[in-house]
């Protein structure tokens, strides 16, 4: 059966720590709100106690499992001709954009990403269907990659539409 091969590179291993931290923060907020509502606004029946506990366990387990899954499935590759990415497990998405059609190359670093020394590279084409993102690269590598992509796309003729 014909398939698409996985792109060559994995994202930076620090991405796991970053995603885990991000999800833990989110989990604390969600579970905190749920618990507060449970504690102050209900009579605390036994089944609701169970439900809130289950939510807490689910959130914290997913905070550790989710990032490891992401790390396994998120891959990228840049060849002389194209940018190639894959992500997702339940719905896998492969994206290819040829160098000659790339319009802009950006890097992006959130505050939490900066703590872990990571950055995203975003490649846009003239299509309205959205940019191709390579998430969670080492910050220096991302900067180099962006510079390289910019150089290649500038050397390629055509108006990218």
């Amino acid at each position: 059966m014909t398939t698409l091969r996985p792109p060559r590179n994995q994202v930076d291993p620090r991405a796991v720590a970053w995603w885990t931290t991000e999800r833990l923060i989110l989990s604390v907020i969600v579970v905190g709100v749920a618990f507060a509502a449970y504690w102050f606004f209900t009579d605390r029946p036994w089944w609701l106690t169970l439900l809130v506990a289950a939510l807490a366990v689910f959130c914290f387990v997913m905070s550790f499992v989710g990032p490891r899954m992401l790390y396994r499935f998120q891959r990228w590759e840049v060849t002389e001709e194209a940018v190639y990415t894959r992500k997702g497990w339940f719905e896998q998405t492969w994206r290819v954009a040829p160098m000659s059609r790339i319009q802009t190359v950006d890097t992006k670093r959130g505050p939490l990403q900066r703590v872990f020394g990571l950055a995203d590279v975003k490649v846009t084409t003239a299509s309205a269907s959205g940019a191709i993102a390579i998430e969670a690269l080492d910050a220096d590598l991302a900067a180099d990659l962006a510079a390289r992509l910019t150089a290649i796309t500038q050397a390629t003729p055509g108006d990218a539409t």
Partner: peptide, 12 residues
């Protein structure tokens, strides 16, 4: 000639 990329999706 107007195709400027591919996005290929496959759900479970």
């Amino acid at each position: 000639k107007g195709i400027i990329g591919w996005e290929i999706k496959q759900s479970y």
